[in-house]
Design a protein around this nucleic acid. Sequence first.
DNA 1: GTCTATAGACAGATAGAC
DNA 2: GTCTATCTGTCTATAGAC
Lengths: 189, 189
Amino acid sequence: MPWPAKHKQNSKERILQSAIKLFSSRGFDGVSIGDIMRDAELTHGGFYAHFSSKQELYAKVIPVAARKSFRSKVSPESSGKEMVHELIDHYLDSKHVDQSKPPCPLAFLVTDVANREEGVRSAYRKAFNKAASLLDKQMSADFPDSRNKAFALLAMMVGGVAIAHAVDDEELEKSLLEACNAVGASLIE
Amino acid sequence: MPWPAKHKQNSKERILQSAIKLFSSRGFDGVSIGDIMRDAELTHGGFYAHFSSKQELYAKVIPVAARKSFRSKVSPESSGKEMVHELIDHYLDSKHVDQSKPPCPLAFLVTDVANREEGVRSAYRKAFNKAASLLDKQMSADFPDSRNKAFALLAMMVGGVAIAHAVDDEELEKSLLEACNAVGASLIE
DNA sequence: GTCTATAGACAGATAGAC
DNA sequence: GTCTATCTGTCTATAGAC
């Protein structure tokens, strides 16, 4: 084992993890390839041995970040309405807004995605559909209109976190998250 | 009246209107000062006679665009729950998502705002508070928890429109808007 | 695959004529 | 206030050594 610990992960994986972190906090245009490679402890020029463009990396980031974020917010054994409650509670949380928990790209990149190329937008669409299906499935036994509820609930969660992140007032952020949490919970009672 | 019609509005106002249109559709980094000035039929260098920086213009755009957007979505004579219903219906509409109706910066710029300077974020916060207060006030006679409902409803509206704009699938966009519309309406029944 | 170096484009902001 | 011209910095992407 001649290499330092930071090289245990292969380079491509390190670039991807750095990209998740940086894109989620500063958006596509707020991060340069140099920033990402520096964070991954590599040099700028090496980027193109792994990805053909910045947008290709961005598109790859979305599903990986989404899976990581949702996995971190539900326990493996929970299901049904309980799982949805748990997800709402962990999603609409200031620890998520400040990104000390794995950030959901559906919320933190929602506006950012609209201006990018086809591949990025379809990656976003797929991640959204996956999340909506998860919610729909867990609610389908209890509600006939579970698909509508899943869409609306997800929109409220994404909107709540995105607004909370945009706003520069901790009190407002807290009130907003609590309001969405309470109303969201009431939708599945 | 020696000047062409396009000069009826003064330059500053034309710059502001071009900025509303371009920022809403392409975000802060997707638009250059040259783009804005070209759209306003002026030249790049003249910009700084009216605004001291791009971010200052961006901060000024937010309240003006928000007022314009909300005004276009409610009739002057409506009030109470009826007004909220009307607003929900016009907000969660594909004509709003495709920006053929005046776009709401709370939705189209929500992610974009987080990375900017103080003045931009506080402009966003103020516009959000104004919209939330409007909803709260119209619902306060009918609901004891009107503030919570106003926050959650606004988050759902903003999230719904932002996601619909990000996604590259018209069917999904339509389903999402309808779901938010239905669930939003059910919150104020 | 990773590095250094650089090409080539474009941005925000400023200077100074009119 | 508006224009043209330009300064200065940064960006994506590529070339070529190792």
